[in-house]
């Protein structure tokens, strides 16, 4: 049984490497609908956030346009698109907000729902989340 699991895991890792090697570097960017697709997702995300009592107060008074452009730049760059995020680093942006796990989870949920709404496939959703999750320690409890 354990031997099967190890074999399965080894195959998983190998296949993971293979798909990365053969596809274009901006495959995820394409899957997200390029820059217009990403902006539509981020805009949808912001609508969901301001509608959610758990987190809306953390976004009160922000410049909506700046938020949409900034986060879209970030996602575009992370996903291999031709953009560069030039805003402040994540620690600076979230300093003093004391963001809880509940609030972080709420935003993650809305991002997934926004991607679903814009028909981003499960695989592309997962790959974007994999790129965003390492930012968790820079965002929560700052």
């Amino acid at each position: 049984m354990t031997r099967y699991l190890v074999t399965l895991l080894a195959i998983a890792l190998l296949m993971g490497c293979q798909t990365r090697a053969t596809e274009p570097a901006d495959a995820l960017y394409q899957a997200l609908g390029e820059r217009p697709g990403i902006e539509a997702i981020v805009e949808d995300l912001l609508f969901r956030i301001v509608d959610d009592d758990r987190i809306a107060f953390q976004f009160r008074g922000i410049d909506a346009q700046q938020f949409i452009v900034g986060l879209s730049d970030q996602i575009c760059e992370l996903s291999g698109g031709p953009c560069q995020y030039t805003g402040k680093d994540m620690v600076t942006v979230h300093r003093g907000m004391a963001i809880s796990d509940s609030q972080f989870n709420a935003v993650a949920e809305h991002l997934v729902l926004a991607m679903e709404r814009h028909r981003v496939g499960t695989g592309a959703q997962n790959r974007l989340l994999a790129l965003l999750v390492p930012m968790y320690p820079e965002i929560v409890r700052q």
Binding site: T19, T122, N126, L129, A130
Partner: peptide
């Protein structure tokens, strides 16, 4: 593990 196997979470 996000997108770890065939882009699925494991």
């Amino acid at each position: 593990f996000f997108a770890a196997f065939l882009e699925r979470n494991v």
